[in-house]
Simulated scan of single mutants.
Amino acid sequence: MKNMLVAVDGSEAGQKAAERALELAKALSAKITVISVAVPAPAPIHWSGTHFYYDELLERQKKQAQEIVEKYKEFFEKEKLEVTTMIKEGDPAEEINKTANSGDYYMVVMGSKGLTGIKRALIGSVANYVVQSCKIPVLVVK
């Protein structure tokens, strides 16, 4: 059975990617693996008078990523699809690419622009990296 990797981050583009992945998975009788990446801060940061340290921020990011993948797990399971989830830590582009290239996946489905705040002319930096580096097909949904 084919297995699609669906990258989500809580953005509108991620939702659209999940909707398209649902259509494809039903048509191909494919399994779904939902991935979200917790992005650690590079160093302790200061925000609005409150100090957040690396470990605390990373735990918050992992909790948020877990909530996101659980939401999409329910979304796909309502349609009777087989779903697994995974949380990675690090750079989203690198982690999605590394997972996609592990040999376990038929294709990647992801949104064109996520929550990175970086705007590009056509597609976001994470999607661009995955499209350029991935060894399997990547569907970028706008």
Rank of each mutant, 00 (worst) to 15 (best):
V141E: 07
E59L: 08
E19N: 09
P42F: 12
G114C: 06
P42E: 09
G111I: 05
Y105V: 08
T84V: 02
S29P: 00
K16Y: 03
D104S: 13
V131C: 08
V130K: 08
S133R: 15
K71P: 07
E23L: 13
F75T: 10
D91M: 06
N97T: 15
T84I: 00
V109F: 05
Y53I: 11
I123E: 02
E94S: 10
P92W: 11
Q66E: 14
Y105H: 07
Q15S: 10
N3F: 01
L139W: 02
L122I: 15
A121Q: 09
E82A: 13
L58S: 09
V83T: 10
M4I: 15
V83C: 04
K80M: 03
V8F: 02
K73D: 07
F75N: 07
V83Y: 02
E95Y: 06
Y72F: 15
Q66P: 00
V37Q: 05
G49D: 09
E94C: 00
Q61P: 03
K26N: 10
I45L: 11
V131G: 07
P137S: 09
A27D: 14
H46W: 10
S29D: 12
S36A: 13
Y105G: 07
E67I: 05
S36V: 00
C134N: 08
V126T: 15
N101E: 06
F76Y: 08
T116E: 10
A38T: 09
V138I: 01
A121R: 12
G90F: 06
A127W: 00
N101L: 07
I32P: 03
R60A: 14
V131P: 05
I136N: 04
K98W: 01
D91C: 07
W47T: 11
A30D: 12
D55K: 13
E89Y: 00
L58I: 12
L58E: 11
T50V: 15
T116V: 03
E12G: 08
G117T: 12
E82D: 14
F52N: 01
E67T: 12
E56I: 13
P137G: 09
A121Y: 12
V69R: 02
